[in-house]
Simulated scan of single mutants.
Amino acid sequence: MTQTPGPAGTWIITPGHMCARFPAAHGCGADVALVDLEDSVPATAKPEARQMARAFFTNPPTRSALGVRISSPTTRDGIRDLAALHGYPAKPQIVLIPKVESARDIEVVAGALDTLGYAPLLYALVETPRALEELPLVVRADRIAGVLFGTADYATAAGCGRAWEPLLHARAALVTSAAAAGIPAIDSPFFDLDDLDGLRHEAEKAKALGFTGKSCVHPAHLPVIDEVFRPSEEEIAAARAIVSAAENAGGSIVRVDGRMAGPPMVAAARALLAREEARTPSEVRA
């Protein structure tokens, strides 16, 4: 079974063993809210986190798409996470798979979770040099819905710094492969919690590179990320003008506000409007 692309935008990740933080994650307004069973949970707390995480998906008052980051399916904890998800009364819409290094990792999770009435959106967390080498195959896995970049683990594995320049090649390769496969690419969190200017600078560069969203671990980062990645009213109006002019011109190159708009610009405008439509609740669009 093939998978349609999943949501982009703002993502927040909350430790699964800290249920007191669940309401904040539900109410923060992120496009996607994930409960974590992997790195943010100590080994001794993982059994407790698997049980607590059930409540994250049980009728929460939220507009966010809800998901879970499991442990790697090639580990004992990952197998236990997958088994635990089967017992959840309410299932996650999204499953983030860490340490993905082959399309087979996606297939294993799909095989473990898919049922006749349930097939979650599967995202691959790319965080090793080996994963980068295998990206052209990973992004074409039948059930993949998107990719995320993990800078901390990647930098550790590659022996490089976590600044923008040392990771530029990996980021560029990731967005290129994701774009070729037609799936969203979400950038890594910015780990300096108090440097909002630094966050904005990195988010702007990630957007310019081709990322369609950015994750975070603290709600204070969400407004900055949302402002960077959500199109302004002016950008939306300009995109509508380009699409309208192109439709009236029968597909010919057109002039809009003094600028040439050929097929690539029209395609970009359509994509912008489609992303905004997907991120806007139906009651707001009505």
Rank of each mutant, 00 (worst) to 15 (best):
A152V: 14
L168R: 06
T156Y: 02
G146T: 03
A141I: 07
V147L: 05
P166Y: 10
A155C: 08
L167W: 01
L167F: 01
V147S: 03
E134C: 07
A145Q: 10
A158N: 06
A145F: 07
Y154G: 00
T156C: 01
E133Y: 13
G159K: 00
E134H: 10
L168D: 03
L137P: 02
P136F: 14
P136S: 09
W164D: 11
H169D: 06
A158G: 08
R143V: 03
T151K: 05
D153P: 01
V139C: 11
H169P: 02
R143Q: 10
L137F: 13
V139Y: 12
Y154W: 09
R140H: 14
P136R: 08
E133Q: 13
H169F: 03
D142T: 12
L168A: 05
G161C: 08
G161I: 05
L168V: 02
V139Q: 06
H169N: 08
A152L: 13
W164H: 14
A158W: 02
L137Q: 15
A157D: 06
I144Q: 05
R162F: 14
L168N: 01
I144H: 04
F149W: 03
R162H: 13
A158E: 02
L167D: 04
G161Q: 11
P166R: 07
G161V: 06
A152E: 14
A141T: 09
A157P: 02
L167T: 10
D153H: 03
L135H: 11
L135W: 06
A163T: 14
